[in-house]
Design a protein around this nucleic acid. Structure first.
Length: 323
DNA sequence: AACGTCCTCAACCGCTGTAGA
DNA sequence: ATCTACAGCGGTTGAGGACGT
């Protein structure tokens, strides 16, 4: 049957609004208030359809609209909410004061979505997908790193080429994006538990450098399972957590000594602060950095993510203990 | 400077949901 | 129950600016 158009579009103007049109619309709404969009254009002296007026008002002219780029915090909120709600832009916008659904939708499609794809994360499911991962950039950063040869010895070439390893990396990256503080805290919790196991079971050679004892921490299957449970308790859905963490438990049982059993794996993924300052967050997110220009902000956010693939080996790390 | 390509985002389109007659 | 008007939503488009050659 079809619905009748909201207005007769013949002769009505389309396209970008002029300052004069904006002024007319603002003046009218200031006097009469928003609403009654069908009759508003005629009463306000605008050659626009009511729908166009409503969109112009709600998406651009409303006095409580917050203009300007999104802060890191806002971006985090969007990613978190999107992982829960999907493309429910209006629902997401309701939790971001001053932002419109249209603005959030645009920002997602032009910035966040692309970055997740580069990171190998499906922007729809928020799950790691190897087929989306920009392998060339990952390998490029690895090949540009002189520590790569050591890394191969450290992790084993088999582990390096293991798609599950990359999956794990992107998983941690995804989770950290969604809740870096809690992920950091849980990693620290897990590491402390691992350290206590080491001290209880295997005496640490006191001649080893201080950090070396930390790097002796084994990440046990039990710890990983508990980490998975902790993440669930943190609010990550069952579909998110097991697919990324628990899904690796079987693999861990097979390859524990190859990579996850080696705590440098996490450190190399960018969790330096987890090892050095227990209470600090692993994320550099900072709202004060909103003064940065667009390109540097984008680079910062990108490098923040890609750093997880910078496998930097501490110079004073005694690799012989690990090989 | 000129041109082509890429990127951003305001605006539009088509559809659904809802309230009221 | 049906119809109409309207608000709202999510997907898509295209003008214009940014950028690279």
């Amino acid at each position: 049957m079809g619905r009748a158009p909201c207005c007769d579009k013949n002769g009505l103007k389309k396209g970008p609004w002029t300052p004069e049109e904006d002024s007319k619309l603002i003046n009218y709404i200031q006097i009469h208030g928003p609403g009654n969009w069908r009759t508003l254009p005629k009463n306000a002296g605008l050659e626009r359809c009511g729908k166009s007026c409503r969109l112009r008002w709600t998406n651009y002219l409303r006095p409580d609209i917050k203009r300007g780029r999104f802060s890191f915090e806002e971006e985090e909120i969007i990613i978190q909410l999107h992982s829960i709600m999907g493309n429910k832009w209006s629902a997401i916008a309701a939790r971001l004061p001053g932002r419109t659904d249209n603005e959030i939708k645009n920002y997602w499609n032009t910035h966040i979505r692309k970055r997740l794809l580069r990171m190998g994360i499906d922007p729809v499911t928020h799950a790691p997908r190897l087929d989306l991962l920009d392998i060339s950039s990952v390998l490029g950063s690895l090949l540009g790193n002189t520590s790569l040869l050591n890394l191969q010895g450290l992790l084993g070439a088999q582990a390096l080429m293991n798609p599950e390893l990359l999956k794990m990396a992107t998983t941690l990256l995804s989770l950290e994006n969604e809740n870096p503080e809690l992920v950091s805290q849980n990693l620290q919790h897990m590491i402390q538990a691992g350290n206590s196991q080491v001290q209880a079971q295997t005496p640490i050679d006191s001649s080893l450098p201080q950090f070396s004892s930390q790097f002796q921490m084994p990440m046990s299957t039990n710890n990983l399972e508990r980490f998975s449970g902790d993440l669930t308790n943190m609010g990550f859905s069952d579909s998110q957590v097991p697919s990324c963490i628990a899904g690796n438990i079987d693999l861990l049982q097979q390859n524990q000594s190859e990579f996850l059993g080696d705590p440098t794996f996490l450190k190399n993924l960018g969790y330096d602060s987890v090892f050095s300052t227990p209470s600090s967050s692993t994320t550099p997110l900072n709202s004060s950095s909103t003064h940065l220009n667009n390109s540097s902000r984008e680079e910062e956010r990108d490098s923040y993510c890609s750093d997880l693939f910078n496998f930097e080996i501490p110079e004073n790390l005694d690799l012989s203990n690990l090989l």
